[in-house]
């Protein structure tokens, strides 16, 4: 059995990379990708620790989380496409006004 410490370290590194991406980038797509990295890391942590407590409840929560993350992508990406169409860029700093 692989130690939980290794899983925690992997998820911590990936979450750290995600935080770096959200802070350092200003393209909306790249920010979304960084947020998705953090989601993956959180999911790995959830499943790692639910092994010790209640794997059934952890599995249910993970299934709901994966479905909601996919729905979130389905909402955010069309918004970014619209943003690109209206402003000609996905730079979030240039889209400070919600105008047409």
């Amino acid at each position: 059995m692989i130690s939980s410490i290794l899983y925690v370290l992997v998820s911590a590194v990936v979450a750290g990379v995600g935080v770096y991406g959200v802070i350092s980038q200003r393209g909306a797509i790249r920010m979304l990708i960084a947020v998705e990295l953090m989601f993956n890391a959180a999911l790995l942590l959830l499943l790692t620790f639910s092994r010790f407590v209640n794997p059934l409840e952890g599995s249910v929560l993970a299934l709901f989380a994966i479905t909601l993350a996919s729905a979130e992508v389905g909402v955010v990406v069309p918004i970014i496409v619209l943003l690109f169409r209206v402003f000609g860029t996905t730079d979030v700093t240039k889209a400070s006004k919600m105008k047409r």
């Binding site: 925690v8 998820s11 911590a12 590194v13 979450a15 750290g16 990379v17 995600g18 935080v19 770096y20 802070i23 350092s24 980038q25 200003r26 393209g27 797509i29 790249r30 942590l45 970014i80 496409v81 690109f84 860029t89 996905t90 730079d91």
Partner: peptide, 26 residues
């Protein structure tokens, strides 16, 4: 959406530090 947005050059090291801090804290 083919474009290459610039990133915050000044924030790069701050972001790197915050990301590392986040990983260490977790």
């Amino acid at each position: 959406m083919r474009e290459l947005p610039e990133d915050y050059r000044s924030l790069k090291f701050v972001a790197l530090a915050i990301g590392e801090l986040f990983a260490i804290l977790i």
